[in-house]
């Protein structure tokens, strides 16, 4: 009984972080789908989301229902700008130039924003706009933070599903990720879809940034690096380019990480995730749900 409720509790903790990884992983996977690019700056856009929420809450005292849309707008705008300024001019350049640029954008965002007067280099306490409450459900307990994370993630995933699978724009996104040349022959403006995909993906990262800061209320300009890498691994685990793969991958990575901390040692937490990456690349390079081999 003791053990069972401990396991359940850890599973819930895993789902909590896994949901955030899923939200970030979606951006990696969708951008990869339409541009065949790993957007290394994606974790930094997630960080930008946490900071935007921080400013909106602590400096502007905005209510939570405004924090979400404004933060999403801010990260989506940053994602759109990064694509326009850094990636679009390289559309016909060799893929390696694009990858190097992505690393450059990531470093730029981190070190530029760490300047004094901007986000600064230090850890900042993130003020939750609500008090933490714990609900005891006999076998296990959940916090209101977890309930917020689960419900916001669920609504985001539902909206994303409707967008991708039920709208004309979503069909166009899927067509571009399958075969951009033929998609263009259908009359789809490829650059428009790429911009749109960046907006959606980085908007989701913004939501992830808010939720992450609710759960771990210490923010820092380099905070996007580890969740960014883990979410990228989650996207690869699920099969890069696949939306459901990113969601399942994110949850697996989150639960795995929490279980390793709980039952082995938190020292191994990050190491195990990298071992997962190695195993996936060795045994199933297309990920759990991937079929085709796609070259980077």
């Amino acid at each position: 009984m003791e053990l069972l409720s401990y396991i359940l509790e850890q599973a819930i903790n895993g789902l909590q972080i896994g949901a955030v990884y899923a939200l970030i992983a979606l951006g990696y996977t969708m951008v990869y789908g339409v541009l065949r690019l790993i957007n290394f700056a994606h974790g930094d856009i997630f960080m930008f989301g946490s900071f935007t929420a921080y400013f909106l809450i602590s400096k502007w005292h905005l209510p939570i229902y405004l924090v979400f849309p404004i933060t999403v707008f801010a990260t989506a705008l940053l994602g759109y700008a990064v694509e326009k300024i850094a990636y679009k001019p390289l559309r016909s350049a060799p893929r390696i130039s694009l990858l190097i640029t992505a690393v450059g954008v990531s470093l730029f965002l981190e070190y530029f924003l760490s300047l004094k007067g901007l986000f600064g280099p230090d850890y900042i306490a993130f003020p939750r706009p609500f008090d933490v409450r714990v609900f005891d459900l006999k076998l296990f307990s959940v916090t209101n933070i977890q309930l917020i994370i689960f419900s916001v993630t669920a609504v985001s995933l539902l909206l994303l599903y409707l967008l991708v699978y039920k709208t004309r724009q979503g069909r166009a996104m899927r067509a571009v990720s399958h075969d951009p040349e033929v998609a263009a022959l259908m009359g789809i403006n490829i650059d428009g879809i790429i911009s749109f995909t960046f907006i959606v993906g980085t908007g989701l990262a913004g939501i992830g940034g808010i939720l992450y800061a609710f759960a771990y209320p210490q923010i820092n300009v380099f905070m996007g690096i580890m969740p960014g890498i883990k979410s990228f691994i989650a996207a690869v685990l699920g099969g890069i380019g696949l939306i459901h793969g990113a969601v399942v991958g994110g949850i697996i990575i989150g639960v795995l990480e929490v279980f390793v901390s709980a039952f082995l040692s938190s020292t191994f937490r990050d190491g195990v995730i990298f071992i997962v990456l190695l195993l996936v690349l060795l045994l199933r390079p297309n990920g759990l749900f991937g079929r085709r081999i796609e070259k980077l």
């Binding site: 004309r168 069909r171 899927r174 399958h178 075969d179 259908m186």
Partner: peptide, 17 residues
């Protein structure tokens, strides 16, 4: 070069994009 993972219907709708 049809879109293999899309339904026939979605392929046709893309044609009318």
């Amino acid at each position: 070069r049809v879109f293999p993972d899309l339904t026939v219907r979605d392929n046709l709708r893309l044609g009318a994009y």
